[in-house]
C-alpha cells in the first residue's frame, strides 16, 4: 500500500504502527458488520483538512449532511458510489447520500469521525493513481467506481468505510420505508402472515432438548 507510506511521510501524525493500524481498521469493519455497533477504538488519527472549492462533486445533488469541505465532498462522493442515489439510479430509489449517510461519518458520537481524514486521503490517492492526478470528488461517478474497485483489491482499510456507508444507509428511516421494514411495532403474533402454524420438518427430539 504505497498510499499509506505516502500518508505517513506527508503528515507524520499517525500514532500507531502501520500493521497495527490496518488491524484496527479490519476490526472496525468486522465490528460494524457483525453487530451494527459502535466500535470504540480508542485510537485517534488526525489528518490535516486540505482546502478545496465549494462546488458539489459531479453527479451529486447534496452532501447528505457532510460539511462542505474537501473531506465532506469526498465522503459524500464515496457514499454515492457505495449506494447510488436518485440522480444515478434510474429507479429513483434513495441512495446513501439521500438518506444522510455521509453525516454519520462526521458524527462525533461514533469513532468513525476519527477516520474521515484517512478515508478521504485513500480515496484521493486511488483517484490520483488511476485518473491523472485528479481528486476523488472531482472525477466522474463511473471513474469513482473504478477507483474504489481498484483500491479495494488488496485488503484495503477502505473496506471499513464501505461497511460504514452501508450501515448508515440501512439504518436510515427513509430506507426502512423504501425496503418495506416497519421498525418499531406491537408484535406480529396476531398477524395473518406470522406463522405457518403447522409442522414444517421432521423433529427428532422429544421436547427440543437433544439427549
Amino acid at each position: 500500500m504505497h498510499s499509506m507510506r505516502r500518508l505517513r511521510s506527508r503528515t507524520g501524525k499517525i500514532q500507531v504502527s502501520r500493521r497495527e493500524f490496518f488491524d484496527l481498521l479490519a476490526v472496525a469493519s468486522a465490528a460494524f458488520a457483525a453487530a451494527r455497533c459502535d466500535p470504540s477504538m480508542g485510537v485517534a488519527v488526525t489528518l490535516p483538512e486540505s482546502e478545496g472549492g465549494d462546488e458539489l462533486p459531479v453527479g451529486l445533488e447534496s452532501l447528505g449532511g457532510a460539511p462542505n469541505t474537501h473531506q465532506g465532498r469526498t465522503i459524500a462522493a464515496f457514499c454515492d458510489v457505495v449506494v447510488p442515489g436518485k440522480k444515478r439510479d434510474p429507479s429513483g430509489a434513495p441512495g446513501a447520500v439521500d438518506v444522510g449517510a455521509p453525516a454519520i461519518f462526521f458524527d462525533h458520537a461514533l469513532p468513525a469521525a476519527e477516520y474521515v481524514g484517512l478515508v478521504a486521503f485513500l480515496l484521493d490517492a486511488a483517484a490520483k493513481d488511476h485518473f491523472d492526478g485528479q481528486r476523488f470528488a472531482d472525477i466522474k461517478p463511473e471513474e469513482r467506481e473504478e477507483a474504489l474497485n481498484l483500491a479495494l483489491k488488496d485488503d484495503s482499510p477502505l473496506e471499513f468505510a464501505v461497511q460504514l456507508a452501508k450501515v448508515a444507509f440501512f439504518s436510515g428511516e427513509k430506507v426502512f420505508a423504501y425496503l418495506g421494514y416497519p421498525g418499531p411495532n406491537d408484535g406480529y403474533i396476531a398477524h395473518p402472515d406470522f406463522t405457518f402454524g403447522v409442522a414444517m420438518a421432521r423433529e427428532i427430539t422429544k421436547d427440543g432438548n437433544y439427549p
Binding site: V27, A31, F32, A34, A35, R36, C37, D38, P184
Partner: peptide, 25 residues
C-alpha cells in the same frame, strides 16, 4: 427501546473490539 440505531445498541451490548481483528458481544 425498539431501536436499530447503532448508538442505542452499543449501550445495551458491550461490543468488545480488540486489536486483533475481532469483536465480541
Amino acid at each position: 427501546m425498539q431501536s436499530d440505531d447503532p448508538r442505542y445498541i452499543a449501550k445495551v451490548i458491550d461490543l468488545v473490539v480488540t486489536r486483533a481483528g475481532v469483536a465480541f458481544r
